[in-house]
Write a protein that binds this DNA or RNA. Structure first.
Length: 500
DNA sequence: CTAGGGTTAG
């Protein structure tokens, strides 16, 4: 699992699955996913059929033959769509990428390479990451600045911020020019991962060399706001003025949001009034920030007043503005009022997006209205947004909380077989649910889920392992517990090996 | 993926 690309060049990735008991259901009474039928021929043409074909394939040679079939016309768009569908099954996705890498005539695009790099980096398989980068270079496709942003982001989120900085500082040696943009990007990545001190130090060292601009300063100010240090953000504001860089509306919106985030509600309100007084041409982002900011602290009336004011001032709300209002109504007011706003936005011709739907669905679930929540879930298709993994996670969670674990599992099986693969959260939600009924069979399912999640490239927390292990031992499943223990030590070896 | 507003957890 560590190095799918480098070690399995001539071997099927699938052999990794063979020593897992996933396809041999001896430890559980009911299978979590149904056994797939043999892949149909001729080959499919749409992304979701390809995805199922790849997911269900147990014979890598046959799969390669199918995907190399001369009747197939591969395009970068199709390849990217298939990778996206396999995103939550990283090994399968990389396997697919790998098969097409050996295609006699087709050559991967830059964006497919970037996706593959992202997947390998998520698996913390850095060896594969750099193999891919070198392959991109020899094909003269890249690496592009975006490639480095992806790599740096994964290093930062794996707790290797210093390594990310090093990579940025040496990216020109990998054939990718440094620029002010890439400088701003690395600073932003560090800030978004809350490594603001580190970002600020890097900023101080290199702001001269890269000629820091208003974006650079905004990134740093936003970083301080993200960790609720509004005063530091104000210092940045002062500093940029001193250095002759004019703050723009984005700067002020960042500070405004920073006040709300830090719970400085009245400071936020005064700042907002000041922005209006100074004629700063406040925009839909400003208003959305204030509506949301008031709402999350329960000031629903003030939130609604600002919403009405923006319409009066001729600033059109966006779907995001509606989402902000709907969210706070669900949380601090009443789902029914949120639904009124939802129906109102639809009447006005706005098209709700998946976030809008997920907010309403969550609100309904929270109010115990599971049936109505499912109704909105089915309605998503009408607005060209299928239920996504977040949608499923919300509904599964609430079914389980309500003790309807079978219904949660049913939805899970639907996603596993369909075109919305479960992610880390899905597995965590379901595994936790397997402990509420105190049924021994549930623990077998929990163990199977644990194996499946590792199989799909997700790393369970130590807590999850221990919980499942204890449960299995207490219910007399020593054999299965042993197997889980072996799995854990395999995972442990992997993480330790990767701590450089 | 050069910056600002909207899903998410006890």
């Amino acid at each position: 699992m560590r190095s799918p690309m480098s070690t399995l060049q001539h071997k099927p990735l699938n052999h990794l699955h063979q020593h897992l008991p996933f396809h041999t259901p001896k430890f559980h009474s009911r299978p979590i996913t149904t056994a797939p039928p043999p892949p149909p021929l001729p080959p499919p043409t749409d992304p979701s059929s390809f995805a199922s074909l790849i997911l269900n394939s147990t014979n890598p040679h046959a799969l390669t033959q199918t995907l190399h079939s001369p009747t197939l016309q591969w395009t970068p768009q199709l390849v990217d769509q298939i990778i996206k569908r396999l995103w939550n099954h990283a090994l399968k996705a990389l396997h697919f990428f790998n098969i097409l890498s050996r295609h006699p005539t087709y050559t991967h695009s830059l964006s497919s390479f970037d996706h593959a790099v992202d997947l390998a980096a998520r698996l913390r398989d850095y060896k594969t990451v750099w193999t891919l980068v070198h392959r991109m270079k020899s094909l003269r496709l890249g690496p592009a600045p975006k490639t480095f942003a992806i790599i740096a982001e994964r290093y930062v989120s794996a707790g290797k911020a210093d390594r990310a900085v090093k990579i940025f500082l040496s990216m020109h040696e990998h054939g990718c020019r440094q620029s002010l943009n890439s400088f701003n990007t690395i600073l932003d990545l560090l800030c978004k991962e809350k490594k603001v001190e580190k970002a600020y130090n890097l900023f101080k060292v290199f702001r001269g060399k890269f000629k820091a601009d208003v974006v650079t300063y905004n990134v740093i100010a936003n970083g301080w706001c993200l960790i609720k240090r509004t005063n530091k953000a104000l210092e940045i504001l002062k500093e940029m003025v001193e250095r002759g860089i004019d703050p723009n509306l984005t700067t002020y919106n960042i500070i405004l949001k920073g006040y709300f985030r830090a719970g400085q509600i009245e400071e936020a309100w005064r700042f907002f009034l000041e922005m209006k007084k100074r004629k700063c041409e406040i925009d839909v982002v400003t208003y959305t920030t204030v509506v949301h900011g008031f709402g999350v602290v329960g000031e629903i009336n003030r939130a609604r007043n600002v919403f009405d004011e923006m319409v009066k001032e001729g600033v059109l709300p966006s779907v995001v503005t509606y989402n902000a209002l709907i969210q706070v109504l669900c949380k601090k007011d009443n789902v029914e009022n949120a639904i009124l706003v939802f129906e109102e936005m639809v009447r006005k011709g706005y098209v709700p997006n998946s976030i809008t739907y997920n907010l309403v669905i969550r609100g309904l679930c929270h109010a115990g209205e599971m049936e109505r929540a499912i109704g909105y879930m089915n309605r998503m298709k009408d607005d060209e947004c299928e239920p996504n993994v977040q949608t499923y996670n919300v509904v599964i969670r609430y079914f389980c909380d309500a003790g309807e674990i079978e219904k949660g599992l049913e939805l899970f099986e639907k996603m596993s077989s369909g075109d919305c693969l479960p992610n880390l959260d899905t597995y965590n939600i379901l595994i936790s649910a397997m402990f509420v009924r105190k049924k021994p069979d549930d623990l077998l399912v929990a163990g199977k889920l644990l194996i499946e999640m590792v199989d799909r490239g997700f790393m369970p927390r130590r807590f999850t392992f221990n919980r499942v292990l204890n449960g299995l031992l207490l219910t007399g499943n020593q054999g299965f517990a042993k197997e889980i223990l072996r799995l854990q030590s395999r995972c442990g070896r992997l993480t330790r090996q990767f701590k450089l």
